[in-house]
């Protein structure tokens, strides 16, 4: 077991008029090598939750264990933790700052105390992994397209060789092609490195296609922790908490409502396609 979140509570602006409970008594486990999706409407606490996982935020009560050790212990090495649990923020391209992409990607591994040579090696690997061509390495990050910038930023985190990669809405603000590219990239990273993936999203389709397990947050609480098929079977509850079910599943639900004998526990495009074909062949 890689990460255990134990009765975590985080309160913003405690003891002021602005006090809000962003995360309230949340517990779950992230297993090694898993592709976990975190769903939740805006303001449900998912961003706060993931920022506690690498000790950027310190919870008011409860704790997080990484490899059986409490990460909020005073002598726990936070820098090493942040190398192991890589966090890609929303709009990560806004954090690029160096004069060229390659130097920017070197920033993370160098902070971990690696030599210039080792850092460059890791930067090279990471940029190759996200699909950068050699000739683009020395471009200014500010000259790249939106999708490329984002890939460079993800490479910046990958270069630290994390064992867990957390991505906060990595497809936000991208066009369909860019979105597809990023999701494929995450899949590829996982296949090639065996890394644990945590995908935070409010796109039902993105998580349905990719995640093996889903965690659903609503008003600072964890409401579901189950397989995507099981979570989306509660479609009424999902709508109630400001979420939805994948678009392809909505087709099946509508068909069923109109009296067609379809199974509705299909959530990916391919499964829904074969279910509809099965119906047509009958």
């Amino acid at each position: 077991m890689s990460i255990i979140v134990d009765h975590l509570t985080y309160i913003y602006a405690k003891d002021t008029a602005y006090e809000t409970r962003a995360v309230d008594d949340v517990s779950f486990v992230i297993n090694d090598g898993e592709y976990l999706g975190i769903l939740g409407a805006t303001g449900s606490g998912k961003s706060t939750l993931i920022q506690t996982l690498n000790a950027l935020l310190i919870p008011d009560s409860g704790t997080v264990y990484f490899d059986g050790k409490d990460i909020f212990d005073k002598d726990y090495d936070k820098k090493e933790l942040r190398g192991n649990v890589g966090l890609v923020f929303q709009y990560p391209e806004h954090q690029l700052f160096e004069t060229d992409v390659f130097t920017d990607v070197c920033y993370g591994p160098k902070n971990l105390g690696l030599s210039q040579k080792d850092a460059e090696l890791r930067a090279y690997e990471a940029l190759k992994l996200v699909g950068f061509k050699d000739e683009d390495f020395y471009q200014s990050p500010f000259d790249l397209s939106g999708g490329e910038k984002r890939k460079a930023a993800i490479a910046g985190v990958l270069a630290m060789k994390p064992r867990v990669l957390i991505l906060d809405e990595p497809t936000a603000g991208l066009d369909p092609k860019g979105r597809w590219e990023i999701l494929e990239l995450i899949k590829k990273i996982r296949e090639e490195t065996g890394i644990t993936i945590l995908l935070v999203s409010h796109s039902m389709d993105d998580v349905a296609e990719n995640a093996e397990r889903l965690i659903v947050m609503y008003k600072s609480h964890l409401v579901f922790d189950d397989s995507p098929v099981n979570v989306f079977s509660h479609y009424e509850k999902m709508k109630e908490i400001g979420l939805d079910v994948p678009q392809v599943m909505q087709v099946l639900l509508e068909l069923k409502r109109r009296g067609f004998p379809v199974e509705t526990d299909r959530i990916t495009l391919n499964d829904v396609k074969s279910e509809i074909l099965r119906l047509l062949k009958r």
Partner: peptide, 12 residues
């Protein structure tokens, strides 16, 4: 956010 993001990349 930027400070946190750079901290996530090991900034001190």
């Amino acid at each position: 956010i930027i400070m946190k993001a750079q901290k996530a990349r090991g900034a001190d």
